[in-house]
Amino acid sequence: MSDVSQRPSRLTGGAFGLLPHLLLFVAILALWELAVMTGVITSIMIPQPSAVAAAIWKLYVTERTIYEHFFITLTEAVVGFLIGAAVAVSLAVASALNEPFKRYVSPYAIVLNVTPGIALTPVIIAWFGYGMGSKMALAAIISFFPIYVNTLTGLVQRHGDREDLFRSVGATDRQVFLKLRVPSALPLMFAGFKIGLTTALIGAVVAEFAQATAGVGVLMSRFSFQLNMASSIAALLSMTLIGLILFYSMEFLDDRVVFWRRESRRAAASRAKARRWTALMGKEED
C-alpha cells in the first residue's frame, strides 16, 4: 500500500527537482557558447559546447572510432582491478587469520602505499610492454592498497558481545569467521572496491598517456597534441562515462551483496526467503 502511494509523489517530486537543474545546465552551456562566440574565451583553449557536441557525435556516431578505445580502456581497468583485488583480498584474509603474517607483510604494503604508484609507470611499461598488459599491471598495483587496508580493517574489527554469543552457542572458529567476521567486513570491503576501481581507471589511463597504441587515454593525448580540444574533451567525457559505469556497477553489486544495509533490499531478500520457505512447506504437506 505504502509503496503505491509513495511512487507518484516521488516521481513528480523528481520532475520538479530536475527542471531547475536542467535550466541551470542549459544556461551555463548557453553562456559558455556565447562567451566563445563573442571572443571572451578563445576557442583554441576552451572550445564551445556545440563543438564538443559535434566531436562527440563524430566519435560515437559518424566515425565510430571511440568504441574500440573505450572497450580497451574499460577492459584494462576492470582486469587490473580484478587482479589487484584478488591479491589484496587474499593477502588481507591471510593477514587477518595469521598475526605473524600480518606483522611481516604490512611493512611492504605500507611501502607500496607511500610510493606514488604512478611513479612506477615507465618501469611497468618496460617490464610488460606497450600493450594492454602494462596498463592492467599498473591498474592492479595502484588499486591494491585501498582494497587491502579496507578488507583487513573490516576483518579484524572487534565484535565483543556478538562474538561472545557465537562462542556461547558453540560456533567453531570457521563459523565465527564466515558468519560473523566476513559479513561484517563486507560493507568496508565494498568501500575499498569502489576506491580501488576508480584508482584502477586512473592507472590504466596514466599508463596509456605514457606509452600505448590504443585506449581512450591515447586518443585524448593525441587530440590534445593536435590542439583538437573539442575532441579531446569528448574523449575526457568518455572516461567520465567509463568511471560512472564502473562506479554504478560496483554500487549495484554492493546493494545486492550487502543487501541487509538497505531497508528496501533487506525487505526484498526476506520476501524471497519467505516465498522459498512457504514453497518448501507446501511441498512437505503434499
Binding site: 589511463v205 596514466v206 593525448s221 567520465t240 568511471g243 560512472l244 564502473l246 562506479f247
Partner: peptide
Amino acid sequence: RFIKPYVIVLEATPRIAVAPLLIAAL
C-alpha cells in the same frame, strides 16, 4: 543542491586525465 550532479560527474572522471588538456591549453 545545484552543484551535486557536477560533483558526481567530477568524482567519476579520472582527474589526472585532464593533464593533456591543460598542457594543450596552458
